[in-house]
Write a protein that binds this DNA or RNA. Structure first.
Lengths: 162, 162
DNA sequence: ATAATCATTCTATATTTACAGAAAAACGCC
DNA sequence: GGCGTTTTTCTGTAAATATAGAATGATTAT
């Protein structure tokens, strides 16, 4: 059973977590979700219970609850349990996270779908040059998306060998 | 000088622009910016002046002004002028837009930077498995980022030949 | 079975962001 | 250079989102 060693505040760690939080906000995470990511990334041991997280981030229970649920849904976070201790110990799960990153990366061709729709809509237009410009963007997105798909396949082959 | 033919409202077009707007919101654009993109994508001729945009979207001048400036800054939009007419005619510029998409795509390796920082921070930790998980995510991001870079180079070669 | 505590949900508040309208500025034709 | 029009900036308001706190629900060790 892990010992919830009463962590004395560590300003350096706090600053680092804030900094990581901001970095994750830039990737599209909401502030609290971003900070929880930051905290779990630096956590040592790399699993922490609900109240450790709450206390470190000085946030409310609902905020932490929502953040953890979001991140668990996202796949980046899961938890451990230890018998004789009903708490859950939350941690980043790099394996699931990686799985998820792959999925997301594959979904990158989103704009292609939109633009194909637009081109169909513009089929009557006489402004051919404009349409050709759009066509080229579609082709680019397609090119990239296909390439990424291929690369992910390669990555997975590589993994099998390891 | 283009004739600002008084456009009678076209419900079908309006619905289509809304729909595109929502699609662009999902890509991270704010609602008005997203609608302006949608409108310019379907515009025929593919350039429209400030008031045509404003009227079509039933928005305020400031909203349209901000949206256009944002999109021009982004590179997706620029404008034409015609002598004897001081209005600016805004349009999507697929060439610049494509340029920009390439840039963004290249910037996809952002998370790598964050995680490298984290790993350095965790160098003392004895939870090696966790660190190895992070390391693998870095490698994946790196693999993808490098691959994309290569593909963009290929794309540009292809373009030169066309 | 129950008491203790872990976790979620609900509701209220604060913060942020988007948008409008008015006023000011910039621009380009005459 | 003056004047009318286009465009931006400023300021206030509305809407959306994030977070807090309280109440409720769920779990398990005893």
């Amino acid at each position: 059973m892990p010992d919830p060693e009463k962590t004395t505040p560590n300003p350096r760690l706090q600053a680092k977590v804030e900094q990581l939080g901001i970095a994750f906000e830039r990737l599209g995470y909401s502030p609290m979700n971003a900070r929880v990511m930051g905290f779990l990334l630096l956590a040592d041991p790399p699993y922490k219970d609900f109240y450790e997280i709450r206390d470190f981030l000085s946030a409310s229970k609902s905020s932490i609850s929502n953040a953890l649920n979001y991140l668990m849904n996202e796949g980046a976070v899961d938890y451990l349990t230890f018998s004789g201790d009903r708490r859950r110990y939350f941690r980043l799960n790099p394996d699931n996270w990686l799985q998820n990153l792959k999925q997301q990366t594959l979904r990158m061709g989103q704009m292609r779908v939109i633009l194909e729709d637009v081109l169909e809509e513009r089929s009557e237009s006489e402004y051919l040059e404009f349409n050709e410009g759009l066509q080229e963007i579609i082709e680019f997105q397609d090119f990239i998306a296909k390439g990424i798909e291929l690369m992910i396949r390669k990555w997975e082959e590589r993994e099998d060998k390891v």
